[in-house]
Structure formats: C-alpha cells, structure tokens
Amino acid sequence: MRWGWLAIAVALLLYPWILTGPFYERMGADLLLAAIAAAAWNILGGYAGQISVGHAVFYGIGAYVPLLVYTHWQLPPVLGIPAGILVSLAVAAVIGVPTFRLQGHYFSMATIAVAELVRIVVGNWDFVGAAIGLMGPAVPRSLLDLSFKSAVPYYYIFLAVLAAILALTAHLERGRMGYYWRAIRAGERAARSLGVPVRRYKLWALLLSAGFTSLAGSLYALMVGFVDPESAFGILVSVEMIITAALGGVGTLLGPLLGAAILVPLKATTNSLFGGGGSGLTYILYGGIILLLARFEPGGLIELSRRIATRSLKKAKARAA
C-alpha cells in the first residue's frame, strides 16, 4: 500500500514533464482540481455518509470571494481564499443545524434546495455581478495575483493542496473521528447508543468538507480568472464532485483521485472531439456512470478491485491446496 502511494506521488510529480503541451497541462490541473473537490466532498458524503448534493454552495463561495475582493477593492485574489473559507464555514454552520435533523434522502434534497436558492440569489445580485459573473485581473500586476499563462504552476499548487487534504483525511480516518464517522454512516441509532455525539461529529465533517470545497472553488477561480453563477453554483458542480468520488469509491482515501483520473480525461476527450456540443454528451455519460454504479458496484472502482483481488487470492489458495 505504501509503495502504491509512492508510485502515485512520483507519477503525479512527473506528469507535466511527460505529457507536455497546453492541452495535457490544463487537463492535469483540471484533474487535480476535480480530485481536490471530490476529496473535500468525500469527507462528509463518503466517510460520514451524509450525501450532500449542495456542495456547489461552498465551491461557489470559494470561487466568488477572491474575484470579489479584486473587483471591489483591487486586492490580490489570493487574499479572498481565507475570507471565502470563513464565509463557507459560517454558511455551513447555519445550513448544518437544520438540515442535519433530516436523514438520508431528505438531507440530500434539502441540500439541493439550499444550493439552488443560493445560485438564484447570486444570479440576481448586482454586487456579485448578477448573471454575468466576475473577472479576475486580466494581466498579472504582481506574482501575488497568481496569474500564469501556463497551467503548470497551477498544477503544482493543486498537487500540494491535494496532498495536504489527503494527508489530513488519512490522519483523521485512523483516529476516533474516522471511526465515529463510519459508525454514523452505518447506523446513527447504534452509534448514539455507544456514546457517539452524532450531531457534533456530522458538523465537524461538514465544516472540514465545506472549508476544503471552498478552497477548491478558490483555486478554480484563480486559474480560470472568471466565474458566473452556473460554473460556480450550478447543480452540476455538486454532481461532478459526487460522481468523481463515487466512481473511485466513496469513503476511501484514493477514491476521489482515482475517479478524477478517469472522468477528467474522458470529459476532455469528448469536449475536444465534439466541441461545444460535446458538453451535453458529457452529462449523458455522467448519467450512464451513475446508473452502472448504482446497479453493479455502489462501492466504486476501489471496491471492485478489492473484490477481484480477494477472488483471485482465493483461487490461488484453492489451486495451492
């Protein structure tokens, strides 16, 4: 397992040197960004089992605040990152208290409602650019603007962020927090009977998840330099996080990265093959993936590979015996 992680780390570090050119560089950055967002979603939706379909709220806040501080006060967008995280945490706490009274599908539906509400409000609010959205600095004024022509600097920034999130998640997964999250996912009533303060641990998961999702949104805005209500707060933003994590394996450390490594190149290919019209095709593809996962392998590719591994192990044992 340790060697596996080392191999992944080396591959990711070398990627921009092996696959060069703007197309692959941008695809690599997109891949890592999708992995960051999915890993952030995975803390709440995977480990703690609370399926949020409204994480676009935090992604959108994270994307908007950096460009907002630039547009209104000409500050470097980077300064908006911690501000965005703080706003996201506050919003998460406000949303969390009432929605965590709901369980299962009801929780998911409530998160969709909140996200759509926020999207519509943002789309009609002139201070945040209404339906048009916000722009970042067209020409970098200093290095602090973090505005690069090539995608490679973003790639390495994203890689560092992803490594930090995965390291923290791995640490929490091993400790009491991780055990309590998994117990909550498996059965709240039983968890409470063993003294697990369910509300508090769900809130912890939500805050961590929201904070990192906000960070992902900020990184997106820094790289793209432009946000509008649909690209930051749209329901597809939430859906992409879920599909990425679910395809790899919900509640696993590697799942989000694995899901992103498959989905992002797939999306880049369909978009380049079919042009703008390909974006519609991408969503048909998403629908197909959801169907296949729900029907055949809710545990995602990680679970599938685990099953194949144990089966071949059993076969090998049977042959030896």
């Binding site: 998994r182 117990a183 059965g187 039983a190």
Partner: peptide, 8 residues
Amino acid sequence: VPATFEEM
C-alpha cells in the same frame, strides 16, 4: 434487530 456496523 442487531444494528452492527456492517462494512466495518
């Protein structure tokens, strides 16, 4: 009805 954590 036993409420064990099935996947763990």
